[in-house]
Amino acid sequence: MKKLCDFSVGESGRVTAVCGTGAVRRRLLDMGVTPGAEVTLVKRAPLGDPLEVTLRGYSLSLRKSEADCVQTEAGV
């Protein structure tokens, strides 16, 4: 079990759960951050936050606080 915000650059994992509430959670789900999706942390912004991840074949940016809602397990 590891949160997406704790990934190091280049690390991958599989989403197991998305916590949080309301708009943030809904938006994460809509953008494809759902259980089973494979995510890779590509880079951090120059000031350390937000993060860029790839999933489902595209790039998504999200803040650390938002990545904190994403639970993952080690990828395949």
Partner: peptide, 9 residues
Amino acid sequence: PPFIMELPA
């Protein structure tokens, strides 16, 4: 506002 945003190709 949240910053969950696509980074387009």
